[in-house]
Design a protein around this nucleic acid. Structure first.
Lengths: 142, 142
DNA sequence: CCTTGCCCTGACGCCGACGTCAAGCCGTAC
DNA sequence: GTACGGCTTGACGTCGGCGTCAGGGCAAGG
């Protein structure tokens, strides 16, 4: 199988495969023309990489999984190094999720506060004076 | 106040302030020497930007807040455009957090599965044969 | 005089994972 | 012949938010 077919079968691009090769992650044999040649095991390696990438793993983080597969293990995560990467990633995710949750709360509070302030202003403006609420309250014309 | 002092008071760098100016976010007056000159209101603008940046807002997303402040409003989020940015950011955060949560679960399951597989392998290896569990189970020397 | 410290502009570097273009080779179909 | 699709390498572009360096000016202190 050549690079185009492998890329298509893995749902990626030839550029990506050449990039992986340049990083030493997915080396290729060459045929008489200098064309890259791959087999089914390369497809498995590639799918392992892509799956982890989809999970947000960096390319370097996929290396232990790939090497594990190349070492003959049935799964990329059959090796201790892969498990370590899993654990580190879980920690990172937990930390990140917690941070984002905190930010979300803060932003939510800011929004509620700002909306309340605008409501108060609108009330002030409509009760004593006329209807037009001064700045850019509504989304009206002009 | 000149650029160094403003940067220090906002806990940032002069490079950052020049960058903001280049983006049209925080324009500066110039004194006789061509030095940038800022006042207290610029510090407020800058603090608004920094706060939002810390929340993970992109620079462009801070623009409505800055313009709101410059329009004379007491808070950067007193304007509808700012509220819209808040709401969009909340949506983004919710989406992102949900995605990360899903990934976290997936990774957690993968880890559990892989650990269980290794435990089963180790049991197979220790019960019938000798103690050394073949590949790289332990973290032993060499 | 020289040094020190602040300021100026302009421009390249960084990080990650590729996209995209250039220029050219290989084989097959028409 | 030539047109086409697929392959090759090399190299620059992308995105954001700055860091960092190069080269030089201005004012004050010793």
């Amino acid at each position: 199988m050549r690079i185009g077919e492998l890329a298509a079968r893995a749902g990626t691009t030839t550029r990506t495969l050449r990039y992986y090769e340049s990083r030493g992650l997915l080396p290729a044999r060459r045929d008489g023309n200098g064309y890259r040649t791959y087999d089914e095991s390369d497809l498995r390696l590639l799918r392992q990489i892509r799956t982890l990438q989809d999970f947000g793993f960096g390319l370097e983080e996929t290396r232990p999984f790939v090497e594990c597969l190349r070492a003959g293990h049935p799964e990329g995560d059959s090796c201790p190094a892969s498990l370590q990467v899993y654990r580190r990633k879980l920690d990172e995710l937990d930390t990140l999720i917690a941070e984002l949750g905190a930010v979300r709360e803060q932003v939510g509070r800011q929004l509620a506060r700002a909306e309340a302030a605008r409501a108060a202003l609108a009330a002030d403006a409509t009760v004593p004076g006329g209807p037009e609420p001064e700045c850019e309250l509504g989304g009206g014309p002009r």
